[in-house]
Write a protein that binds this DNA or RNA. Structure first.
Lengths: 343, 343
DNA sequence: AGACTCGGTCCTCGACTCGCT
DNA sequence: TAGCGAGTCGAGGACCGAGTC
C-alpha cells in the first residue's frame, strides 16, 4: 500500500518549502515559473493528492454540500420510498455538485438541533432543504452564515433564504381549467396537506381561481387531505370517493402518486377512466405515461429543479452573487388519456 | 453568531488542560471522577461540539461512508432517474448509517482513478458499491484497505470484498416455473444485459433451469437484451415482440420497470393481459401493485438490502468481524393479475 | 531608497495522544 | 494515578527577508 504522500514530501522532492507547493497548487501567483514547473512535476511523479480533510480544517471550508430530506416518521426513514419525485431531484443535484468538485452529503432530518450541529461540526459549506420542514427549523437555521437553498417551501422564508420552486398556483389553475373545459363541474381536489404543504396550498389557490373564473363556487366538500403522498393513500381515498361522494366525476390530485392510487381504486370497482372519471395529476413522474390509461398531468422538470437548486448553492458559496435567489420554474399541462369530456 | 467553541475553551472554563477534556470525551479512563464531572458541565455550559473535521484529521477516520452508483452515461447523471430500485435501497442505507452516527456521502461513479482519489482524499471509512461496475474498477479498489461492500455484483469478487445480493437464480426459477405451470411454453426472457449485468445472468440461469425441468429446450430466440432497464426500453421491446415474435405468449422480464413498459406496449396494441400475454417482473417496486393489471413479480426487499449492506460496512469498519460477509437474501413470488393460464 | 519578485519560516485550524511528572 | 505539555495529523497563508532593478 502506498504510504500517504503529503505536501512536505512533494516539497522535499522538488527541493522547495511546503509553502511554495501550497501556493502553486492554490493558484496563488507567488512562485517563479521555473520552480512552479519543478513543483508540478514533483506532484505528478509522486502522484500527490491533497488531503481534503486537512484542507477543510485549514480553509474552514469542506467542499461538501448537505441535502436534507424531511422524514415524517423517525422510526423508518422513508426518504425516497414511494417518492420518485425526490429521487429525480437528487439526481439533478448530484450531477451539478460533482461537476463543480463538491461532494454531496445526505441526511434525513432529525431535530433542528442535530441539524445545526451537523452543519457546524462537519463544516458543511451549503445546504439544500427539500420540501417543507417544521417552522422552528427555519428559525434556528437563521443562526447559520452558510448559504441555504430551500426547494418547494413556504414563501414567508424568502426574505431569509434562497428559494427554488415551480409555479404551483398556475399548475393548479391549468389542471382545473382543463377539467372545466371538458365540461366538469364536480371537481375534487386531493392534497397531502393544505396547511403543512405550501406546495399544495398554492395548487389549491390555482384550483379555486379556475373554478371561480368558470362561475363554479368552490366547496369544502370537494377538498380532501391525506396524511402523506403515496399510492396507498390515493387508493384509500379513491375508495372513499366511490362510497361517499358519488357526485364527483373529476379529480385533480396534487401528485401523480396520489392520482395513480386513486385511479387504481376506481378501476378496481369497475369504473372506466376517462369515461366515468377524469383524473389529473401533478409532477409527471415517468410512470404516469406508462399507466393505463396514461395520466394527464402537470409536468414539472424535477431533474432541472435539482440542477437549479444545486447551482444556486454553489454560486452562493463562491460569492458569485450576494442577493437571495428566487427562481420559479414553469409548468406545463400534459394531456393524456385519463381525462375526457364529461359524458 | 456564536464564535466556535474549541476544546481549549472548554479546558479553560473547567480549569484543566485540553488533553483531559479529550480523554473524557473519548471515554479514556485517565481522569478522576471529580474533574470529569467538572469537564462535563463545562461542555454543557458552553454547548461544546467537537469539530468533526479536526477529529477526522487527527484520528484518520472521517465517520463518513461513501455510496457509489453506476452511471452508464456521464453526460447525464441518471443515478435515480427511473430507478426506483436504487431509491429504495438508499433509503435503507441512510437509515442505518445515520443511526450509527455516520454520514452518507454519495457520488456517481466517474473513473476508477477518481474513485480511488475520492476515498483517499476524503478519508472515507467505508464504501458501498451499488450494482455492477467496470472490472478494472474492482481491480483498482483492491489497493484500498478500507472495507468495501458490493451489492448485486459479480460473484468472482467475493474473495476480495463483502457482498450482499438476493437469490437471483431462484427468483428466475420461481418466475419461470410459475409461467410453465400456467401452461406456457413460449416464454421470453427480457434482460438488461446478460454479460454486463451479473444479476441478469443469474436470473437467466434460473429461467433456463426451470425450462429444462419442464422439458422445454431453451432457445436463444426467446432471449432479449435492452441497453438499460427503463420503461422506454421495455415499451420498445414490447412493440418488437408484437412485430417479430408472434409465437411468444409469456414474458419474464428482469425488472418491473421493463415489465411495465412491455405491458404498456402490448396493451396499446389492443392485447389483453393476462388473457393474451402473461407477464412477470422482478423487484416488486411499489408501482407494480398499482398498475393495471397489477403485476405478478418476484419480490425482493430492497430497503432491507440497503439495511444489511450498510450494517455490514459499519461492522467491518468497527472491526466487529474480519471475515468477508456474503449475504444472499431471499426472494418471493407474488402472484397478481398479469399472469393467467394459457388460453 | 523604493517597489517588486521569489521563497522560506512559522503559526494556524481543532482535536488526539505519547510520555513525563 | 491524575493531569499536563508538547508534538502530531496535513495543509494554508500571513509575514518577513533577501535579492533585483
Amino acid at each position: 500500500m502506498g504510504e500517504k504522500i503529503t505536501i512536505r514530501d512533494v516539497a522535499k522532492h522538488a527541493g522547495v518549502s511546503a509553502a511554495s507547493v501550497s501556493y502553486v497548487l492554490n493558484g496563488i501567483n507567488k512562485v517563479s515559473d521555473e520552480t512552479k514547473e519543478r513543483i508540478l512535476t514533483a506532484v505528478k511523479e509522486l502522484n500527490y493528492e491533497p488531503n481534503l480533510t486537512a484542507v477543510s480544517l485549514s480553509k474552514q471550508k469542506s467542499n461538501m454540500i448537505g441535502v436534507m430530506f424531511p422524514l415524517t416518521d423517525d422510526s423508518l426513514s422513508t426518504i425516497f420510498k414511494d417518492n420518485h419525485y425526490y429521487s429525480e431531484m437528487i439526481s439533478g443535484i448530484e450531477y451539478v455538485i460533482r461537476k463543480h468538485g463538491y461532494d454531496l452529503v445526505i441526511s434525513g432530518a432529525s431535530s433542528p438541533a442535530d441539524c445545526l450541529k451537523w452543519i457546524r461540526t462537519r463544516n458543511i459549506d451549503g445546504l439544500l432543504f427539500l420540501g417543507a420542514f417544521p417552522h422552528r427549523l427555519y428559525e434556528k437555521m437563521k443562526a447559520l452564515s452558510n448559504p441555504i437553498v430551500l426547494v418547494d417551501t413556504y414563501e414567508r422564508y424568502e426574505r431569509d433564504y434562497h428559494h427554488i420552486s415551480v409555479d404551483d398556483e398556475y399548475g393548479g389553475y391549468l389542471a382545473t381549467t382543463h377539467l372545466v373545459n371538458l365540461g366538469h363541474k364536480e371537481i375534487a381536489f386531493v392534497a397531502h396537506h393544505l396547511v403543512n404543504s405550501p406546495v399544495d396550498k398554492k395548487r389549491y389557490i390555482g384550483y379555486e381561481k379556475a373554478l371561480k373564473e368558470a362561475g363554479i363556487t368552490p366547496s369544502k366538500t370537494f377538498v380532501f387531505e391525506v396524511n402523506e403522498s403515496s399510492f396507498d393513500n390515493g387508493y384509500n381515498l379513491g375508495n372513499k370517493l366511490l362510497k361517499d361522494h358519488k357526485d364527483i366525476r373529476a379529480v385533480f390530485a396534487s401528485s401523480d402518486t396520489l392520482a395513480l392510487g386513486i385511479m387504481k381504486a376506481l378501476q378496481e370497482k369497475g369504473k372506466k377512466i376517462p369515461q366515468d372519471y377524469s383524473i389529473v395529476g401533478f409532477d409527471d413522474i415517468t410512470f404516469s405515461s406508462y399507466a393505463s390509461p396514461s395520466l394527464t398531468t402537470i409536468r414539472q422538470d424535477v431533474f432541472n429543479k435539482g440542477v437549479v437548486a444545486a447551482t444556486s448553492v454553489i454560486q452562493a458559496i463562491e460569492h458569485r452573487f450576494s442577493t437571495l435567489q428566487h427562481v420559479k420554474l414553469s409548468v406545463e399541462l400534459i394531456i393524456r388519456d385519463s381525462t375526457a369530456k364529461r359524458g
